[in-house]
């Protein structure tokens, strides 16, 4: 057969594309439920991580059900919108961010464990250098002091921007405060290497300036929308 004729080339390309498309969509459909389940478990692990509860993919769901006693959504005005735990878990921050501030559903997860006490876990989401950043910040009952935090990213460079997901970076947030002494919302501001001791600053990642700036904006944008809710819960 003449493998260089136009007809053969066109046929070959079309058949190849069809086969590849079929194989890929079949795999994607088959694996989708499993992948979604993995993502859900990861989210539960992240939420638990923010309060310092480490979990494995195997026990994450059990621990989540046990320690996250309730979850609800609030509006930017601070009023409770829905108290449905599952619906709150499913709130997609990416979609919420596109709405006007007044219309957003802002999730709050309430953690309670004997000996630790009640904490409020707030999700945050923003942009890094190469893709989204997200995380969970656990607040003390005073709605001001950070009890713990966990952050993740999709595609930041290992050793540089990806450092935001290391314990060394995350632990510096413990004890920081998002309202200043006068009670004004300040978020937590990025500085270079001099943050220790200051309640309202964090150290940037060296070599990850764009990621750090995006991170700072993420804290400001997300936490500010909870401002009224946090003030009212003081």
């Amino acid at each position: 057969m003449n493998t260089n004729s136009n007809t053969y080339t066109f046929l070959y390309a079309s058949v190849m594309v069809l086969i590849v498309a079929a194989v890929l969509s079949f795999t994607a459909l088959q694996l989708k439920p499993r992948q979604n389940k993995n993502r859900e478990i990861e989210k539960k692990q992240d939420i638990l991580n923010a309060v310092g509860v480490s979990s494995t993919p195997a026990d994450a769901e059990k621990l989540y059900d046990q320690y996250i006693v309730k979850a609800f959504t609030v509006s930017s005005e601070g009023t409770v919108k829905s108290e449905d735990k599952d619906a709150t878990f499913k709130v997609d921050l990416k979609r919420e961010a596109k709405k006007d501030l007044e219309e957003r559903d802002l999730p709050v997860f309430v953690f309670n464990k004997e000996g630790v006490g009640e904490k409020m876990i707030l999700p945050v989401r923003g942009k890094g250098m190469w893709g989204p950043l997200w995380g969970y910040i656990a607040m003390e009952k005073d709605g001001n002091t950070i009890f713990g935090a966990t952050f993740a990213h999709q595609g930041e460079t290992p050793g540089l921007g990806a450092e935001i997901s290391t314990p060394a970076f995350q632990d510096q947030f413990i004890g920081k405060q998002i309202f200043n002494e006068a009670g004004k919302f300040t978020s937590i501001i990025m500085v270079k290497g001099t943050a220790s001791g200051n309640l309202h600053q964090f150290d940037a990642v060296s070599g990850g300036t764009v990621t750090s700036k995006g991170f700072e904006a993420m804290l400001l944008d997300n936490l500010s929308s909870y401002e009224k809710f946090l003030k009212s819960s003081k």
């Binding site: 260089n4 070959y12 390309a13 594309v17």
Partner: peptide
């Protein structure tokens, strides 16, 4: 033996 040589790079990429 089946790949048309004019689109072989594309076939490889796919």
């Amino acid at each position: 033996h089946t790949i048309p040589s004019r689109i072989r790079i594309i076939v490889q990429l796919v």
